[in-house]
Structure formats: C-alpha cells, structure tokens
Write a protein that binds this DNA or RNA. Sequence first.
DNA 1: AAAGGATATGGAATCGATTACACACATCTC
DNA 2: GAGATGTGTGTAATCGATTCCATATCCTTT
Lengths: 329, 329
Amino acid sequence: MTTINDIAKMANVSRTTVSRVLNNNGYVSESARERVMKVVEATGYIPSVSAKSLRTKRSGVIGVILPKISTETASRVVGGINEVVAKEGFQILLTDTELNHEKEIEYIRLLHSRHVDGIILLATNVNDRLLNTIEDANLPFISLGQELPGVTSIVYDDYHASRDMTHMIIKKGHKKIAYIGVGEDDPAVGVLRKQGFIETIQEAGLEVEESWIRYGDFSIESGYESMKQIVEASPGNLPTAVFVVTDRMAVGAMEYLKEQGLRIPQDIAITGIGASVMSKYVSPSLTTIDYFNKEAGTMAAELLLEQLQDKNTKKKFLQNYRLIERDSV
Amino acid sequence: MTTINDIAKMANVSRTTVSRVLNNNGYVSESARERVMKVVEATGYIPSVSAKSLRTKRSGVIGVILPKISTETASRVVGGINEVVAKEGFQILLTDTELNHEKEIEYIRLLHSRHVDGIILLATNVNDRLLNTIEDANLPFISLGQELPGVTSIVYDDYHASRDMTHMIIKKGHKKIAYIGVGEDDPAVGVLRKQGFIETIQEAGLEVEESWIRYGDFSIESGYESMKQIVEASPGNLPTAVFVVTDRMAVGAMEYLKEQGLRIPQDIAITGIGASVMSKYVSPSLTTIDYFNKEAGTMAAELLLEQLQDKNTKKKFLQNYRLIERDSV
DNA sequence: AAAGGATATGGAATCGATTACACACATCTC
DNA sequence: GAGATGTGTGTAATCGATTCCATATCCTTT
C-alpha cells in the first residue's frame, strides 16, 4: 500500500503539502501541486479512509438499517437513498435486522462506532431504549416509515391512505368487507392501516365481522392462508371485498380465490397497499396505493445531508401517496 | 466519545490491558478482566473501528458492487450475502455502478482504500483494466455472474439453461421461435443466453428469422416494445413462441400480446429467465428458469470468508439452475 | 526602509486503537 | 538454589492521515 509519506517523498515535498493538495486546502504553489498530482496519478494512490476518518471523525459513509434486505420496498428505498448520497461521494453501509427489534439498537451503536456520518433507519417499532440509543449516538438521524419523537421522521400517511382505500371500496357498493392485516407491534402497517380501515367502516355505519379479520406476516403465503381462513369461516356468507394491508399478501389472497373458482372482482373484490411491480401484472391487476418509496428514500437522504451541515431540522414529514385504481375492485 | 484511554483510567489499568480483555488475547488476571468489563458495560463503550482498522488493516466490512441496486436479483443476492457475513460480524458496504463499467473500477479502488476485507462484484462485463484493478487491490475477491479469469467466479450456467429452455420449446412442437435479448456487451445475459438459444435452434434444423431477433434493456417496457416490433414486422406470419432472456422483459412482452388479443400460450408461447416472484403470479404463469440467486449470494459470501483465511481458492463455480415449467408454454 | 500581510512549506502533535518488548514476580525443574 | 517457564502488566512505537504552529519569502503599503 502506498501512503501519503511515499507520495511526499516521490514528489519531494512534505506530507503536509500532499494533504493540502488532496484536500484543496491552504496555500500550495502551482509547481508543488503539479508534482504531487503527477505522482498521485502515476501511483493510483488513494488515501486510507481509516486514517482520515480517525483524524476527522467523518467517514463518508451513511448507515442504513433495514428490517429486511430483500424486499421490494427496501430495495426501492435504498435505491433512492443511494442516488442522492452517491452524488455527494458517500457510500452506504447496510445492515439488516431481520425484523429483530433488539438488533436495531445494536446496529445503531455499531454504526456509531464505525464513525458513520449519519443513519437512516427504516424502523418497525418504537420504544424507549431505541430512542435513548439514538439520543446517545448524537448523529444526524432519519427515521423512515415510523414516527420517532425527537427524530426527523418521514412517514407514509398510512391512516389516510387506508381511509381513502376503504372509502373507495364502500363507494363501489360493498358492505361486507374483510380485513387481512399484520401484527399490531408494527405501529404503521399494523396499527395505522387498521385504524383507518376500521374507523371508515364504522363511520359508514357498517359492521366489521370478527371472523373476517385475519393477520399475516407480510408473506404471500400468509395472505393465501388468511384468505382461506376467512372463506372457510363463513360458508354461504362470504364478504364481497377484502382489504389487505400489503400487495404481497393481497396476491396470496387472490391466488386462493382463483383456486376456489371465485371471480375477482365480481365475487370478491380485493385491494393491496404498496404498488409492487407485480401488482400491475397479476390478473386482474391489483388496486393498490403507491407510497413512492424511492422518493421517500431520496427525501430521507436529502434531509440527512441537510442535517450534516446544520443539525436543526427535527421535523416530521408526511410522504404523500396515490391510490391506483385497477381491475381488482 | 469514550475511548480506550477513558476505560483504562476508570478501570485502573493500562490501555494495553483493556485491549487484551476486549480481544481475548494475552494474559489478563481475572480481577483486571472483571473491572474492565464492568466499566465497558457501564459506559457502553465500543472501540473506534477507524483506529482499529488503521492498525490492523481489517475493517469487518465486505464491499459489494452491484450493477443496479433496486432489482430483484440484486436484492436476493445481497440478502444471501448478508445472511452469511452478518453471522461472522461483518457488515456490507454497498455500491451501485448504475450499469456504468467505469464505475466498477472506481469502486474497487475506493473499497480498497476503505480497507474492506473483501469484495464481491456482480460484474456485467469483462475487460483488462478491470482485471488489473482487481489484481492491484490484492484482496479476497469474488465475481458473481460473470467469469473473470484469475478470479474466483460463481457463474450461472446461462448457456445450458438457455439450451434446456429452447429444447423444451422445440419439444412442444414450436418451429417458429422469436428471441428477445439484451446487448452483447453483457457476456452472460447477452452472449451466453443467446448462444444457447441459437445453437439449439440450429441443431434442431430450424431457421432463426432475422426480424424476430430483438434487443431490450432489461426493463418491462423494452420487452413490450420488442414484442411489438416482432409482431408488427411479420403480419400474417407470427412466431408461435418467444424466448425472452429475462422475466421482466417477458412480462412486458406478455402485456403486449394480451393487449393485441393474442392468447398465451395457444397463439404465442413465451418464456423468461430468472424466476422473479412476479413470474409465478402473472397470467398465465410464466415458464422460467430459477438461478437460485440467494444461494449464489450465500455461496459467494462463503467463498469470500474462506479466502479471508487462506488465499488459494481461485476457481470457477457453476451455479445450478432449475427449469420451472408453468402455463405460458 | 520598516511593518504588515499574503503565499508557501515543513515539523510535530494528534486521532484511538494494537502489539512488540521489557520487566516483575511466582512457580517449577533438575 | 539457579535457571527456565508461565503469568500479568505497562511503556512506547506504530498505523496513515489532518492540522496547529513556526518559519521563510516575497509583495505592498506608508
């Protein structure tokens, strides 16, 4: 490995001067600058980031904590983040909690010790230890997808999105509407989406049948299972529409209905949330809500970069959404 | 930030001893160990990775270079990699070349300067400067998806997969088969898959109509466009099957056919490659080839970890595949 | 012509860890 | 009981950069 000392010797200057040239910083004569640059190019020298970061406390790395790495949402968000930060010369250090809440905390501390310049967390829950850890890290920090008090948060408008969707279903004349959701330890997907659904239903004077409320785990299979349970629980009295909180589970539910020879949407209508690529190409195409994940990612990155300059933009941002009406309702 | 010196003072030992305790290395008395651990836990101290990595030349980070971050293939592979390396306490530093060949080289050097312990490259092309850069970096290195001479490579068996698929199409009685591919600067997807297709066709004594060979850019839309061009080029004499080199483009092609009222597979059969989630849920479900991307990722990670210990496993590994026959043929 | 500022350069401290080496003491071996 | 060996601890060098401070020219300005 060639170091700054090698470069200095070869260019016949002190390493101070080399550093000045490379960082464009302080007075350097034109001749010295040229000599240094020539040597740098000839050797392909790149400064050691560890040394630099040890000295400056900045690393040019943004930590990103994901609940699950290989999902469409995650990859869109990361794509958006990367687009912004790469332009500024930052890299992304990825960590995956595998939906383990404890690991969110662990990774924040780990990323901190790695001197990352900032952290973007795709949170799935909120608790005091998490908040304390964030506080301790004292780093530019963005939460995406959940609102964390005292932390700049970008949240999807789950409540209103759910309301709009439910409203649309009701307007189409449906009165018997089932629900497939996820566990309520997820404040956004589990609680807010359900709340939007339930409240809209009740405001319309409709009942929510207990056996028509099921919970999955985000997987396609769990959507299939939940749908099966709903159908089997009510022979002769099926719902005419199903509100599903994610596209994947909705696709699973559709599979089951198709297998049973039930027509979508004539016999049972179905809706998802998330605007997965797939939603457009299943048949019938799935009515869903686009949360603009990639844009949320770019926004998170931009806010983080802002915080890197002055640390005073603690706010909550509501990401907007779009109801995509297709053929499944 | 608390440092090793703070811990040393608080535990009433030298920082050497603290280091020994933390790295489990050298002689330390039980009483000293306990005192140090108590202070470490109380303060939540984590050693500075920059300092450590400056000294040891290892960072606990694996660099991953992707052609495009937000694709299903990429996210599966990264998921597989992460699963393996996370267990060993490594993190992933992600970079995205946006299909820019020059950036592959740039990022290898950048990752090197960051003292990553190894690199996994999802290469899209092969050239001498790339090989030289890899040589210079002198790091544990895995190429995934393309064979790089002198570098441990995991490659999908594109040639035989294509042959199998083409064979299957022919066996179903098709004689007029169109092809939708990608540019030939991609040795794997562009060249090998095409070669497998063409050679199998010719061995079967069939002709390959010039106007039935089209190229897209991996996007769904380009599949749609290519299909459109093929259909419009041959009014009254359509192919009866289309071999498409990726699922996404195949889905685009299907969209066009469906729009035109052409039935799949009765009027025109269609195949993809990649086993995207979507392929299973479009209608008709798409016949495709599963390359086990996630497993390729875990394998890449395992080979990298092996190389981290002894650097002598330069080999080529052929990832196996599985033809999934569904309803589109 | 002296003072002050701008330009150019280098010496040396510093960041926070690891580790070679030295030293002290206890125990064991012949 | 002398030397070898094992255990425990600390001092100081080191990794490769940045940056404060000192020093030396060279120009202006009054």
